[in-house]
Write a protein that binds this DNA or RNA. Structure first.
Lengths: 207, 207
DNA sequence: GTCTATATTTCGATAGAC
DNA sequence: GTCTATCGAAATATAGAC
């Protein structure tokens, strides 16, 4: 269900001493270019012709690596999905809502710090990604988003706690994605610490 | 610079006893339909043909009220811009950063609660709106967004405080826009109170 | 103010050579 | 794996009748 063609390895197919400007496979380069263009201009406003130009190849070359434009966006979605999935696996879902939420949030801060650009892509192309999701009517998501929805939809938890859970998610999202470059020159470590403290106060769980 | 045609009044042009399904002017109805479609499907994926269908008129009728598709999105932007501007006017910018931020945030919660759908439109069409903004190279924005950027970019404030300011913005945004329908059945008053308390804790300014 | 055409452009996708 | 050439669809926008 994932990616049938060459795969998305970081290292190129050939050995060292490469004369190409990049050791990445062409497929990976397409994804990197698309990631940036989709984020800045939006998915619909980015044409394959434009991607091909930055790639240095023609438009038809892209169709060797991806069978449609949607498949490019989908591959980028899986990049984040896979990262999120392995992060979720390392967290056991405790019965104590607030405590398990706090540990989850800590992991989530790290994840978002590491893949800021992928989160930004998703934030700025929600409509296109939801359309992809709807057309793939099968596909058990098991998404990060589902995890959030499940936690926030649990009406056995009092409203104030649920609001603070949603707020802590938004707080992280706001600092790392929404404000854009406001904290771009701040060391990741400082950002992580400040965010953790802030979310602790928000969840009223000072350590 | 705003809207040259009929204007965007809420009440229709004719007196009571209307036989039309709505008392709004056609221009206003177009904006309402576009607001919903742009939000759900995205600006680019929404065609004028689709808007015309829901409107009950033909595509060409829309061009009597708006001279381009971009103008429709721009008019919706001004709807929020005007609300935000009048909200900003009622806040004097104090020299005490944290205190003035807290009062600003309280106003902001109210604003976002009242115009949730307009904020959601903006969140889901940032790329399109930024393109509009870039093409209008004049236009001193004096936007809500500028107000945030100015506050967050003030490097004379320590990082932890700036992070908490960005976090409080994200917290509100997260609860009222990002999570979508998770709190849709919650009374606005309860949501406002929970959010205010949460942000107070986040800014370490208990009242 | 709203209609029926239609002009114009751009894009995603395919075919087939190399 | 990449190219050139082209097809077909769909969209924005306009012209002119009513």
């Amino acid at each position: 269900m994932k990616s049938e063609p060459p795969g998305d390895q970081v290292l190129g197919a050939r050995s060292a001493g490469e004369d190409h400007p990049s050791v990445e496979s062409t497929r990976s380069r397409i994804l990197d270019i698309a990631l940036e263009l989709f984020t800045v201009q939006g998915y619909e406003k980015t044409s394959l012709r434009q991607i091909a130009e930055e790639l240095g190849y023609s438009k038809a070359a892209i169709y060797y690596h991806f069978k449609s434009k949607d498949e490019i966006l989908l591959a980028l979605h899986y990049r984040l999905h896979d990262f999120g999935h392995s992060a979720l696996e390392s967290i056991e879902t405790s019965s104590d809502t607030v405590a398990s939420w706090t540990t989850f949030v800590d992991q989530f801060i790290d994840l978002m710090l590491e893949h800021r650009n992928l989160f930004t892509l998703h934030e700025r192309n929600r409509a296109a990604l939801e359309r992809l999701h709807d057309e793939r009517h099968g596909a058990s998501h098991d998404d990060l988003e589902d995890h959030f929805r499940r936690a926030l939809g649990d009406t056995s938890v009092d409203l104030d706690t649920r609001v603070r859970m949603a707020a802590s998610f938004g707080a992280i999202f706001g600092c790392l994605v929404l404000v854009g470059d406001a904290f771009h020159d701040v060391p990741a470590e400082d950002l992580r610490q400040s965010l953790r403290w802030a979310v602790r106060d928000l969840m009223r769980q000072p350590e």
